[in-house]
């Protein structure tokens, strides 16, 4: 069974904003990346999955349950990192995590481990925390109860590169452990390093949904260069990781996701 299943989901906010007839699914255990510029509809899609918005047409299901009608059952399995984080500003980090633990009614098995992993001191009041520290609290809150499905809306925003790396590692581990992951991002590297498939969303519709590998293949360019001698050819092949065949060297340039992305978007970002 698909862990996440979205069918013909539409939501028109007018002036070409919203999402239009989105259909896709994420099988259990897959990491799916959602890439798109600001205002493309990533967060709107996620809000539907979270049961914050009621589908105007179409439907979305998580673990076979309707995201709007049975949001409480859906939420049992979901860990969510919101794109815009607003906390109960009156609490400290640890008070907040304790509240979430009690409120959701599930023991936070991984809290300690995650706090250590992100070097987070949770005793500080939330309103005194920097953006990055708040982001860490949100990450811990989403993952501490070890949910089966992760919905992550730009989860590394505000984190420094070191912490971004730790987060990517964590997500890879989670995938190894069989979690289903939906990761929305505009960081190409993050998606490239964690996801199996990518949906490129533009103006509320998918411009492409494919595996990272296929996307790369489609945009693979290879060049064959002939050099004067075999020695030079071998050296050249070594330097540019090409395939040497006599004096001929074949080099493939794999486009980064960013370049592929710009291909689909034609450089400029439209509304």
């Amino acid at each position: 069974m698909d862990a996440v299943c979205v069918e013909h989901l539409s939501r028109d906010f007018g002036q070409n904003r919203g999402i239009f007839d989105l259909t896709f699914s994420i099988p259990e255990g897959e990491a799916f990346g959602l890439l798109g510029p600001n205002g493309a509809g990533k967060t709107t899609l996620i809000r539907h999955l979270m049961g914050f918005l009621r589908p105007k047409s179409g439907s979305c299901h998580i673990a076979g349950k309707d995201c709007w009608a049975h949001s409480d059952l859906v939420q049992k399995q979901v860990g969510y990192i919101p794109g815009e984080i607003a906390f109960f500003e009156d609490l400290s980090g640890i008070e907040f995590l304790r509240f979430i633990e009690n409120y959701r009614g599930v023991f936070a098995v991984r809290q300690k481990e995650l706090l250590e992993r992100f070097e987070l001191d949770p005793k500080v009041k939330l309103k005194r925390m920097s953006k990055g520290t708040k982001q860490k609290v949100a990450i811990v809150a989403a993952l501490m109860q070890d949910p089966q499905i992760l919905i992550l809306d730009e989860p590394t925003s505000g984190l420094d590169p070191l912490m971004q790396n730790r987060f990517v590692e964590l997500i890879r581990e989670e995938k190894e452990r069989g979690k289903t992951i939906l990761l929305s991002s505009h960081l190409f590297e993050e998606v490239e390093r964690t996801c199996d498939r990518v949906g490129m969303i533009r103006a509320g519709s998918f411009a492409a949904v494919d595996t990272i590998e296929t996307l790369r293949q489609r945009h693979l360019r290879s060049y064959t260069v002939t050099l004067e001698s075999e020695e030079k050819a071998q050296a050249f092949a070594r330097d540019f990781s090409g395939i040497c065949n006599g004096t001929c060297v074949t080099i493939s340039a794999r486009l980064s996701l960013e370049e592929i992305f710009m291909d689909y978007y034609g450089g400029g970002v439209e509304q």
Binding site: S71, D72, L73, A86, F87, E89, Y103, R104
Partner: peptide, 17 residues
């Protein structure tokens, strides 16, 4: 308005509750 409602709704607790 402030957005903190997301922590209450993003949990296995019905809105009615």
């Amino acid at each position: 308005d402030g957005g903190a409602m997301l922590w209450l709704t993003a949990a296995p607790v019905k809105r009615r509750k």
